[in-house]
Amino acid sequence: LAEGTARDVRNPADHRDLVGTVVEATSEHVSAALSHAVAAAPIWQATPVDARADCLARAADLLEAQMHTLMGLIVREAGKSLPNAVAEIREAIDFLRYYSTQIREEFSNDTHRPLGPVVCISPWNFPLAIFMGQVAAALAAGNTVLAKPAEQTPLIAAQAVRILREAGVPAGAVQLLPGDGETVGAALVADHRTRAVMFTGSTEVARLINKQLSQRLDSEGRPIPLIAETGGQNAMIVDSSALAEQVVADVLQSAFDSAGQRCSALRVLCLQDDVAERTLEMLTGAMKELAIGNPDRLSADFGPVIDVEAKRGIDTHVATMREKGRKVTQMPMADSCGA
């Protein structure tokens, strides 16, 4: 097969920092990977449940042993703070141990039949935890996996796959296909050999995937399953009985942690009139104390958004609010923060 396009992966907090290089998959790679997944499916399906569970448990132990190395990669590639990186690795470990325990207690190869090749499409905001959670669930059930990570965070995904293989998961059972959604993701979803899709990302893309999958059935006449986790608008409603100091701390944590790049992040704050003015005054003061910078520094409360496109979207939203006459409170950026 011809080589795909090589692309630099840079630190979103400092574009001078070259984190690594990724060679993106082509449509030919996608087809070949699906052929490997189909060929490996009977072997992985027939693997005893305890053996599959052992692989996931070993992968959890390897993640734990390599936490410091993985922390550095998550901080540099995804722009996450050190506490966020620790939490992410712990969540990935939890996923592996959870599914390992679940199949030991509840699964049998005689009663639980896998679907076949499963496509896992994961986001950049939790590039290890959600990636590993999707892949571990599919592998635990005896499916072979074709994993397409977010374009922004392929290196973390590559380390996750390396660890799974080191833990004993066969190469044909888990394959990494980095690349963009229009080329790699679309080809994986459209291929008739794909038996299920797990997707975390935008609602718009989830609808497109759902539409594509709805146009075909599997070899036994069943719909192709889609498990999708998408975005939303999250509100906090505060009445006069709430402790203002706690409200402010919770708002800062929910709205700004991970630079606000979580599907669970606070988007709308509703305050009772009686406490609105005081709470907003405290919130504005607390915002002024936040330190934004390179997340490899413990002095930084929050790091960057993932890329220029994300920043452009935020800037456009702020400009739109100002044009509508809305009051906008925006903290000045330090000189060390890139434009």
Score class of each variant (00 low, 15 high):
192 H>V: 04
192 H>L: 13
193 R>I: 14
193 R>L: 06
193 R>M: 07
194 T>H: 00
194 T>W: 02
194 T>L: 10
195 R>M: 14
199 F>G: 04
199 F>H: 02
200 T>V: 14
201 G>E: 10
201 G>Y: 00
202 S>K: 05
203 T>G: 07
205 V>P: 15
206 A>L: 03
206 A>S: 12
207 R>P: 08
208 L>W: 01
208 L>P: 01
209 I>R: 06
209 I>N: 04
210 N>R: 05
210 N>C: 09
211 K>P: 04
212 Q>C: 10
212 Q>D: 11
212 Q>E: 15
213 L>G: 14
214 S>G: 00
214 S>L: 06
215 Q>N: 11
217 L>K: 05
217 L>E: 09
217 L>Q: 14
218 D>P: 01
218 D>A: 06
218 D>Y: 01
219 S>M: 00
219 S>T: 08
219 S>H: 06
219 S>D: 14
219 S>G: 10
220 E>Q: 15
220 E>F: 01
220 E>L: 15
221 G>M: 12
226 L>P: 05
227 I>W: 11
228 A>G: 12
228 A>Q: 01
229 E>C: 11
229 E>I: 01
229 E>V: 08
230 T>E: 02
231 G>L: 03
232 G>T: 00
232 G>P: 02
233 Q>G: 10
235 A>F: 07
235 A>I: 09
235 A>L: 09
236 M>E: 11
236 M>Y: 03
237 I>S: 04
238 V>E: 08
238 V>K: 02
238 V>S: 12
239 D>G: 13
240 S>M: 07
241 S>W: 06
241 S>V: 14
243 L>N: 14
244 A>M: 01
244 A>T: 13
245 E>G: 08
246 Q>C: 12
247 V>R: 03
247 V>L: 03
248 V>G: 05
250 D>T: 04
250 D>G: 11
250 D>N: 15
253 Q>D: 12
253 Q>T: 15
254 S>M: 10
255 A>E: 12
255 A>P: 05
255 A>W: 01
255 A>R: 08
255 A>M: 04
256 F>W: 08
256 F>P: 06
258 S>D: 00
261 Q>R: 05
263 C>H: 12
263 C>W: 03
265 A>M: 09
266 L>C: 12
266 L>A: 09
267 R>D: 04
267 R>E: 05
